[in-house]
């Protein structure tokens, strides 16, 4: 494995290696000097076709703390907005000698296309492709769950995770379902039927339309961002009705077990899918998720660029 395109690409052992490595990275990040020389002389390109400051700076911080050179390539105000094709942009990056390309794109499959095309020689890391996947988000979520629930070790066997909201359009949900299944967690997707994809019953998870029925048993409640424009497409009647049926407010949160945590990949719509008092409560891991994102992305960059998943390289040795 040279690329990280889908959370489903990771075996249980590989996923645990990433999480364990991230754990050590996090330890090193407690020090005064956070920077490690590991990727000195390597170039990581952040190729962002979609605005996502949080994800970009997270990858940028991860690469820089490993001493990689970072080139940020944003589609806005660049040759891309002048009509340069995906292929030509990729070839340009290749000419610059990118050792890794972190790609964010509004088109599902863009990362896989880049990885399979042969246009770039380096590792491709999917930083979110359309409504398909966002594997490093799933890894940082799993890392956060493990820290909070399992003292930072082992897998997530038997842990009950509810993922609530717009599953249909969520790359975070897709990657989380795949990774959490690999790590042994029991996932339940909770959403109005309009926001669940056709065929969701074939996914490795359960499905419910009733949040209140799921909450008392959950160890983790992960809320997905609900975009207001979904209303105009008749996915649900109004934000108010959505909040009433699927929003996590303090009253609902009271039904949770004491140890249960509340997660959100951000950015949040306070007052829609999550009430402010829940987002700011002890249960909330939302800020922690951001910090964990850097450690997890350091681990991913280190392991991919170090060829940890690449068995052919070991044989050459």
């Amino acid at each position: 494995m040279r690329h990280l395109v889908s959370a489903g690409d990771l075996s249980r052992d590989e996923a645990l290696l990433v999480l364990d490595t991230a754990h050590e990275m996090a330890g090193l990040q407690q020090r005064e000097i956070k920077k490690l020389p590991t990727l000195r002389g390597r170039t990581v390109v952040n190729l962002f076709y979609e605005d996502s400051t949080r994800t970009r700076i997270s990858f940028e911080a991860a690469a820089k703390r490993l001493s990689a050179d970072v080139i940020n390539f944003s589609a806005k105000g660049s040759s891309v907005s002048k009509g340069e094709s995906f292929k030509d942009t990729a070839l340009t990056l290749q000419a610059m000698g990118a050792d890794a390309v972190v790609v964010r794109h509004s088109a599902s499959g863009a990362a896989q296309r880049l990885a399979a095309s042969g246009w770039v020689g380096g590792s491709v890391v999917n930083a979110g492709d359309g409504t398909h996947e966002h594997p490093t988000q799933a890894l940082l979520d799993a890392y956060t769950m493990r820290r909070r629930l399992n003292a930072g070790t082992g897998d997530l066997a038997g842990r009950r995770v509810a993922i609530v909201g717009d599953v249909l359009h969520s790359r975070v949900a897709r990657s989380n379902v795949l990774l959490l299944a690999t790590l042994g967690a029991d996932v339940t997707l909770v959403a109005p039927p309009t926001l669940l994809p056709i065929g969701v019953e074939s996914w490795p998870c359960a499905v419910s339309y009733d949040l209140d029925a799921v909450l008392p048993k959950a160890d983790v409640v992960m809320l997905l961002r609900v975009q207001r424009e979904r209303m105009s497409e008749a996915y649900f009647p109004s934000a108010r009705e959505y909040t009433r049926r699927y929003g996590l407010d303090a009253t609902r949160a009271a039904a949770l077990q004491d140890s249960a945590i509340v997660m959100h990949p951000g950015p949040m719509n306070r007052g829609v899918e999550i009430a402010a008092e829940v987002a700011d409560s002890e249960r909330s891991t939302i800020v922690e998720q951001v910090a964990n994102g850097v450690s997890v992305r350091m681990a991913v960059l280190y392991l991919l660029l170090g060829g940890a998943f690449d068995t052919s390289k070991e044989q050459q040795r």
């Binding site: 599902s108 398909h132 790359r171 994809p197 056709i198 065929g199």
Partner: peptide, 10 residues
């Protein structure tokens, strides 16, 4: 539209 489109996010 089917199970695969859901998985692929298309």
């Amino acid at each position: 539209e089917g199970a695969l489109s859901g998985v692929l996010g298309l």
